[in-house]
Computed example of a mutant assay.
Amino acid sequence: MYNVGIDVGNKELVMVIRHKGKNQKARTFSNTSDGHAKIVKTLSVKKGGAKICLEATGVYHFDLAVALNHAGLNLMVVNPKAAKHYFEALMTRSKTDQVDAGILAQYAETMPFEAWVMPDEKIIRLQAFSRKIAALTRLKAQTKNQLHALESNRAIPEIIQEETRESITFFEMQIQRLKEHALALIASDEELQRPFEIVTSVKGIADASAIQLLGELLVLPKDMRNRQWVAFAGLDPRHHKSGTSVSKKPRISKAGNSYLRRALYMPALCAANRDPYVKAYYRHLIDNQGLKKMQALCAVMRKLLHAIHAMLKNNVCFDNTRFFNMAEVEIL
């Protein structure tokens, strides 16, 4: 039996194969579908099978885990905190991607194997719809900006403007068609219908935003806490202090799932304008806490994610009266 550790990064995957108590030379692959296919090909030919261990690293490990699972390979995805404690117990002096991959291979060799359970196929399909819609929406926005620039320049031929308008129309048709397929998928499955009803109970979350949110949230492990959701979205504050001279204001880390972060932006903005309790919280952060508008909006996004976590966990719809105690401040 071979034991394999894979250190997952944004762009690279470092793999170490351990056999008979010894680590083989580390190999590096790109964190793309081609890189995943090469890893599958390498491990599929190992006689006696292989146990693969990788760490749950935000959004970057998921596509690899799906590829390994589809190939029928033995995979476990360890909690980052468990991996950290194991690393500390070994008292390793160096920390590199190669070292981390080797320790994960050792983890697979010595610790009880807990097979990773892949999310339901329908949830993965929903995520595929949501991400394609998000990509097309960005392309449409970029093309609209190009059209605005073209219309401002009289020297640009009309045919170029017409082609650009047709591109925008084409993107809109694609988005609408994919949205309809996603909604049909949700309507066909009771396990998707109820979460959809729950998230759309928030004033500011309509069909499009609900598709985006559920596509990213439903693939997450059931035991993840609300703070882990926040960190997964990259909405956790990052502090920058060094000695007594460097002390910058905290900013969101953005070290997480950008799809989820973008999916939360418009719902938070709409809720801050339309829901009286969310608006009161937003104004309280600006008027009483001295936050800038964007900082306050990020705080609303973070708290809204906390609320969605509780709603899905307890199978209840949104109760805006619990979002903020309006008695604490004067409502503007």
Rank of each mutant, 00 (worst) to 15 (best):
V199K: 04
V219K: 13
Q142E: 15
L126R: 02
V78Q: 05
C298I: 07
C298R: 10
K25V: 11
L90F: 10
A128Q: 10
V99D: 02
G9Q: 08
A37P: 01
C270D: 08
S242K: 14
D319A: 13
L285T: 10
R283G: 03
A141M: 11
L150G: 02
A231M: 06
P267E: 06
P276M: 10
P237D: 13
C317L: 09
L220A: 09
K279W: 04
A187C: 07
V202T: 05
P237R: 07
N23W: 04
K293M: 12
I286V: 12
E121K: 11
Y107V: 00
L150T: 01
T92P: 00
P237F: 08
G102W: 00
A307V: 13
N273G: 12
L218N: 03
S247N: 14
D63C: 07
A89K: 11
S167A: 15
D120K: 12
K81T: 15
A272Q: 00
H240M: 10
N10A: 15
K11I: 12
D223H: 12
L147H: 02
G5T: 05
D97T: 02
L75Q: 03
A108K: 09
M301C: 15
L235C: 09
M91L: 14
L68M: 08
C53Q: 09
L185K: 02
A149M: 12
Q24G: 15
A50K: 00
L183P: 09
D189I: 02
K51V: 04
S130P: 00
M118Q: 13
Q295K: 07
S253L: 07
T96R: 11
A184G: 12
R165H: 09
R322Q: 15
I124P: 06
A155G: 12
A263V: 02
M111G: 03
S247Q: 12
S209R: 06
F171S: 01
T200S: 09
S253M: 10
T32E: 13
W116D: 05
N325F: 07
R274C: 15
D120E: 15
M1G: 09
S209H: 07
Q212K: 08
L269A: 06
H284A: 11
S253C: 12
I186Y: 05
R125P: 01
L291V: 03
A210K: 03
T92Y: 13
L136H: 12
H239G: 07
S152L: 11
E216F: 04
